[in-house]
Simulated scan of single mutants.
Amino acid sequence: MAHPIMFDDADPFLARVRTLALALPDAAEKISHGRPAFHTTKVFAYYGGSVKVDGVYQQHEHSVVVLVDPAEREALLEDARGYVPAYLGPSGWIGVDLGGDTDWDEIGELLDAGYRRTAGKRRVAALDARA
C-alpha cells in the first residue's frame, strides 16, 4: 500500500530546505513514506514528521528531521522547536519545527551535520573542498 503524500510541493519552508539540502554534493530527493527525503546513498534528512500521543499521530508538517551528534540532539530537545519523531527518534533522529523566525543558517548546519553522518568519506571530502 502506497503512503499518502503528506506535503505541499508549493510550501515555502520546503523550498528553503530543498535548496539547502540539494546544494550538498550528490544530494538528491525522493519521496519516502509520503514525505520528501534527502539522500546520497542513505537518507540524511526528511521534511516533516510526526509524534505519537495517546495513540494518535500529531503532524509536524513544517519541520526538518535529521540525524545529528548525540550531544547536539540533547541541546535541540531542550529547545521548544525540537521533538523526537515517531519511528526515527529511537535511532537518534531529531525533528526541528520551522516557522517565521527560523534561523536558516542553523537549519543549514543541521542538514550539513546529518549529511556528514551518512554521506561517506568521498562526499564529505568534496563538501570540505568547497570551503
Rank of each mutant, 00 (worst) to 15 (best):
M1I: 01
M1P: 01
A2Q: 13
A2M: 08
H3F: 05
P4G: 00
A10C: 07
V17A: 14
V17C: 06
T19F: 07
L20D: 07
L22K: 14
L22V: 12
A23M: 10
A23R: 10
L24K: 01
P25M: 02
P25L: 08
D26P: 09
D26C: 11
D26G: 06
A28K: 15
A28L: 14
K30Y: 01
I31P: 00
I31W: 08
S32M: 11
S32I: 12
G34W: 00
P36L: 11
T40E: 12
T41M: 08
K42W: 02
K42I: 00
F44V: 04
F44A: 01
A45K: 01
Y46N: 10
Y46D: 03
G49S: 05
K52V: 04
K52T: 09
D54W: 04
G55Q: 09
V56H: 11
H60C: 11
V64R: 12
V65K: 14
L67G: 12
V68D: 12
D69C: 08
E72N: 05
R73T: 01
A75T: 02
A75R: 15
E78I: 00
R81K: 06
V84E: 13
V84Q: 13
V84N: 14
Y87R: 12
L88C: 10
L88E: 10
L88D: 07
G89E: 13
S91C: 05
I94M: 13
V96R: 15
V96A: 05
D97E: 13
D97T: 00
G100E: 13
D101K: 15
D101M: 09
D103E: 00
E109P: 06
L110E: 12
G114K: 08
R116A: 10
T118V: 11
R122T: 04
V124Y: 04
A125M: 02
A125P: 07
L127D: 00
D128A: 14
A129K: 14
